[in-house]
Design a protein around this nucleic acid. Sequence first.
DNA 1: GTGGTTATTGTACGATCGTTCAACAACACA
DNA 2: TGTGTTGTTGAACGATCGTACAATAACCAC
Lengths: 215, 215
Amino acid sequence: MARAARKPRFERQLPEQRRQALIAATIECLKRYGHEGLSIRTISAQAGVSVGLINHHFPNKDELVAAAYRQFNAELVGGMQAAVARAPDSPEARMRAFLEASFSAPNLDADTLTVWVVFWGLYRHSRPIQRVHRETYQGYVQLLRGMLDELLAEEDGPRGQRPRRSGVDLKMAAVGLSALLDGLWLAWCLEPGTFRPAEAIALCESWIASLRRRG
Amino acid sequence: MARAARKPRFERQLPEQRRQALIAATIECLKRYGHEGLSIRTISAQAGVSVGLINHHFPNKDELVAAAYRQFNAELVGGMQAAVARAPDSPEARMRAFLEASFSAPNLDADTLTVWVVFWGLYRHSRPIQRVHRETYQGYVQLLRGMLDELLAEEDGPRGQRPRRSGVDLKMAAVGLSALLDGLWLAWCLEPGTFRPAEAIALCESWIASLRRRG
DNA sequence: GTGGTTATTGTACGATCGTTCAACAACACA
DNA sequence: TGTGTTGTTGAACGATCGTACAATAACCAC
């Protein structure tokens, strides 16, 4: 009898590949179902594996969620950094690229907000989430801070030898820009019809312009 | 034998009082434990009643949570409205009172953010939450919009007969102020040490000032 | 082929979830 | 003091949760 080409019931994968697939499934479940998507059974079904596999690749659910948080953050922040790196080599162009990346997909997306909110909700009571937050968020802060610095250094001449003026105002101006960014992003995700992304960018740029005038 | 003064095992209360107590317990649990505090047993323990009582006063858990959301919103928005009403009768003073209420307790509080985040997480998938959100949030929006209107009407003379100039910019300026408010509030709650509430108020007022210059 | 490694499966377990409901008791009123 | 109303209790139910673990089988090395 000719041997039937038996299809394997499952495919073994390298641990790193499987881990990535499970992390991707976790994020996908969060996008679709929010906090209720954070169950071992929902995630394993999304990944197309059995319930037991997750605990083979992750010590427990918290660590899987933290890994998903790291991946989610890294993708967004990495996308921003890449957009800035692709931009023409002037502080203005780099800042413009940053703003355009901030106010376009995948950043500007209701699903992204959904995922964010779930992680925020976990933040205060989950140590792994706090740890990942510290690891990744400072990358974003440094990116924004660095761009502001080089943008304002222009006022100080070729190499910024002179000390910066009015340090307090400058710090608060940066705080304000960051808040304006977050607030506009939040408002758009909650109610996309209210204004267009280009209008949000214009608001941020006019803030920066007033910043440079006073800088 | 002298009759011992038997203490009642529990006290009956009017349905409305008990409902309020259960709602208050729900909010308290959310402040303390976040999303994990949203369980019938946690809430009933916090309220000092048995598990069964909640379903006697509320048809199900979702309705209790929605009622808690309504109460939570009403308290915050009501506090803002009251602060504005207490202020001297000038648009500037009213706006200042609004900002001061925005950047002080109970609004400016990490626990408040915790509760907010949980409700946000429920928003997309819970009809009752969406309904309550529409009911209460527009009260806040109208308050802010009304104050901006009367503040900018001054530029147009005694009774604002003249049509407003540059409507698009004005709409976006209001959007920007709202975003700045929310973003600063969020940033302070997440990291209270970064700046002082008075500095946030100053940022908002300088935004309004630039708004009036261009208005 | 054969054997060994280990990724994968799926059942089982104890805990906790929201909800139900019959029994109880507090309080008002006759 | 007796009686009716109903706010309240607490056990019980089925569902679902995260995790553990023995059995299975895919795939590689030889």
